[in-house]
Computed example of a mutant assay.
Amino acid sequence: MNGGVSIHVVDVASGRVAQGMGVSIGAVGQASILEGNVDERGLLPLLETLGVCFGVGVYEVRLQVAAFYRARGASIADTPFLDELVYRFGIGDAREHYHLPFKLTAWGVSCFRGGA
Rank of each mutant, 00 (worst) to 15 (best):
D83S: 09
A67Y: 02
Q19A: 06
A116K: 15
Y59A: 01
E96G: 09
A106H: 08
A94W: 08
G108L: 10
H99W: 06
I76Y: 09
A94K: 08
Y69H: 06
F68W: 05
V5Q: 01
G92V: 07
I76E: 09
Y98E: 08
A74R: 14
A13D: 10
Y59I: 04
E96C: 14
I25V: 09
V28M: 12
A106Q: 13
G115M: 14
L34R: 13
Y87E: 07
L104T: 05
F89M: 12
R41S: 11
S6E: 06
H99G: 13
L43E: 11
G51E: 03
T105I: 08
Q30F: 07
G42V: 01
P80Y: 07
Q30N: 07
T49A: 04
H99M: 12
Q19I: 04
P45S: 00
F68P: 01
R88T: 08
M1E: 13
G108H: 13
S75P: 06
G90L: 10
G114N: 13
G73S: 09
T105L: 12
V10Q: 15
R95Q: 13
G20C: 06
E84R: 04
G73I: 13
D11V: 02
R62P: 04
G15D: 13
S6M: 07
V52I: 12
V86A: 05
I76Q: 09
V38N: 05
A77R: 15
E40A: 08
G36H: 05
Q64P: 01
V17L: 07
Q64Y: 00
A74Q: 11
S75L: 09
A77Y: 11
I33A: 00
V38S: 01
L47S: 00
D11C: 04
L44H: 02
G92W: 11
G4I: 03
G114R: 14
F81Y: 11
D39C: 01
V17A: 05
Y59R: 10
D83C: 05
V5W: 04
Y87S: 07
L43I: 00
S110V: 04
V17N: 13
F112P: 06
A13Y: 12
E84Q: 11
V109I: 11
V28S: 07
Y98N: 11
A94M: 09
S110Y: 08
L85M: 11
G90A: 15
Q19S: 00
Y98K: 14
Q19Y: 04
A74T: 03
G29R: 08
C111Y: 12
Y69V: 00
E40L: 14
A66K: 08
R70V: 03
S14R: 15
I91S: 00
G108C: 05
